[in-house]
Simulated scan of single mutants.
Amino acid sequence: MSKPLILVTNDDGITAPGLRALIRYMAALGDVVVVAPDSPQSGMGHAITLDNALYSKKMKVDLENGAKEEYSCSGTPADCVKLGLQVLLKRRPDICVSGINHGSNSSINVIYSGTMSAAIESGIEGIPAIGFSLCDYSWEADFRPAETAIKKIVKEALDNGIPKGVVLNVNIPKLGKEELKGIKICRQARANWKEKFDHRTNPMGKDYYWLTGEFELLDRGEDTDEWALANGYVSVVPTQFDLTAHHAIQSLNNWKLHE
């Protein structure tokens, strides 16, 4: 039997160390094809390119790293998946993995994440998908302690599938291999960002702003991704892309909309 085909993408760009690590780990499980942004696209969410041309370039493959083919794309992470599935890949992948992101995508961060949006785009197309993030923003982050957990999660997904309409949001604490306690299936913690804008003026007298803020955890539950990460576990949150608030339908049907 042929090996599973694994589509690898990210939002930090095709040269990001986290992507290179993920390619190596996936090469042990299947045939890897990479389609990733040609420059960093963090915080792009599920943006797609509509008013500009998309460009793709076939990259020279680092044979030691394990990919069969690599392509850079001028667009967003979601664009990379769309272009990969519709144009670049020779057959439908068995799974899409996105990451390893430099920095957390736990809790409310999933909303803004380009890493997770690439996974969600694959899920929309019916392809099992997982987004991986390490809670370390450094470009020199050590991804080696995460290898075993990442391979285990992907292998289980390949063997057992992922429920329809669901993608997995996996976050890994910044810990040594010996310090990681295991893997926990979690829910997304309730949290938000208490934001502010740093107002500055450039030498020409024009105002500009830098977005800053503090993460505000509103959830003390011990079944959340934030609890798992704080206590040394890899968190796995099943995330759906049907945004319907089903529990609110009955309440809204009581509105006097038809009078």
Rank of each mutant, 00 (worst) to 15 (best):
A28S: 13
S56A: 10
Y55R: 12
A27G: 04
R91P: 02
L19T: 02
M44K: 06
P77E: 11
G66Q: 05
A28Q: 14
L63N: 09
S107W: 06
S56G: 07
E70Y: 03
A78C: 14
N105G: 01
H46A: 15
Y71L: 02
I23C: 03
D94P: 07
G84L: 08
M44D: 06
S106C: 10
L29G: 12
E69P: 07
E64Y: 08
M44Q: 13
R92H: 05
V87Y: 12
G84Q: 04
P77K: 03
L89N: 03
L29H: 10
K82L: 13
G18M: 07
N52K: 14
G84R: 05
V87A: 11
I95Q: 09
K60S: 08
C73D: 05
S42Q: 15
L85P: 11
M26A: 04
K58N: 09
P93T: 06
A53R: 08
E69W: 08
S104L: 02
I48K: 12
Y55V: 07
E64S: 13
I108N: 04
G75P: 11
C73K: 00
P77W: 07
L29K: 09
V32W: 13
L50C: 10
V32F: 09
S104R: 00
M59W: 01
A27N: 05
D79M: 01
N105W: 02
V87G: 00
